[in-house]
Design a protein around this nucleic acid. Structure first.
Lengths: 109, 109
DNA sequence: TTATTATATTGCAATATTACGATTAAATTA
DNA sequence: TAATTTAATCGTAATATTGCAATATAATAA
């Protein structure tokens, strides 16, 4: 086993889980925060900033890119990453709405 | 290898990742949504509602409980789970603030 | 007491994730 | 052209996650 049964869940549930998974590693959180704080973000910066190997950073960047949260512009010997604004806004809405389900609660304990 | 290097990240980054991990599986998203929509939540309901084995549901519930998002009241032959309001609010604030970093962006691509 | 019912726990197999050294690819510089 | 630089990719080891059958636990019902 070990294979998530995506097919038994709703599209929304899978999307929320998928976005959350992108945030589910501190390195990716750190990468995103670093992108937010930089006017431009080059992968090499991150290797210095975060204490992980270049290959590992690159792998995390690819995950963020695959899920659509960031996009990269290929420059001469470096790559400039930044947030994909549209996709980020969608992700934010989806997660925010999920977190706001709280208002509909009717707790018993 | 394969061990997340938590010690090189900030407390906040680890917390965000930890909360996101709880949402990073559609079964746990479904469980939380079900709890939101019920005045009371019994584990057996979930096994019927979601198409996973009882052992698997129980395992996901334990993860949500360990991270503090839900709490369970042990009743006679059944357990009533509900959201831990305080911890949920904290999680919501942390994630919302992170998602709002968007406003600080200065994209270049 | 002996079923029965409901949930937790254990053990295990399958799959996924994390991390990194080594290598590759592609542009830049000497 | 030959080194250098920068980031992606490959291969692999270590660890984590997912799912479930089987079993344990604990209260209720017969």
């Amino acid at each position: 086993m070990g294979l998530t049964k995506s097919e038994i869940f709703t599209e929304e549930q899978n999307q929320i889980a998928s976005i959350a998974k992108a945030f589910a590693h501190p390195a990716r959180v750190a990468i995103l925060q670093h992108i937010f704080n930089s006017s431009t973000c080059i992968c090499g910066d991150l290797v210095d900033e975060i204490g992980l190997a270049q290959a590992t950073i690159s792998q995390h960047l690819r995950e963020l890119k695959n899920i659509g949260l960031i996009k990269g512009n290929i420059e001469p010997t470096s790559v400039c990453y930044c947030i994909d604004e549209d996709n980020w806004a969608n992700a934010k809405d989806l997660i925010s709405q999920f977190l706001d389900y709280e208002s509909k609660k009717t707790n018993c304990c």
